[in-house]
């Protein structure tokens, strides 16, 4: 399946792109992280400490165990700082 992967804030800066389209068979976000980390050293570094990373699947907050089949968009970002 094809998924759009989005990065925000320092994750976007460290990985170097705001979004990329990936062809994946990942069953969960955790599997997708493993695949993405193998793409480049920048990916691996940005995704190395997942306690500092939040995830949304199809624009809803999720976690590493969130299932991916059927998802179209996954976003990775730091803890939010609105308000």
């Amino acid at each position: 399946m094809t998924i759009d992967v989005l990065y925000f804030a320092w994750l976007r800066e460290r990985i170097g792109v705001p979004r990329e389209r990936v062809d994946t068979a990942a069953a969960t976000v955790r599997d997708l992280v493993a695949e993405l980390s193998a793409r480049s050293d920048w990916h691996a570094a940005a995704l190395s400490d997942l306690s500092a990373v939040r995830v949304a699947v199809d624009q809803r907050l999720g976690d590493l165990d969130a299932p991916l089949p059927g998802a179209r968009e996954v976003a990775f970002f730091p803890p939010m700082t609105g308000g």
Binding site: T81, G82, G83
Partner: peptide, 14 residues
């Protein structure tokens, strides 16, 4: 609302 917006609305400040 303010408490939720602070840490659950997707904004990032620099």
């Amino acid at each position: 609302l303010m408490d939720w917006l602070k840490s659950r609305a997707p904004f990032w400040k620099r």
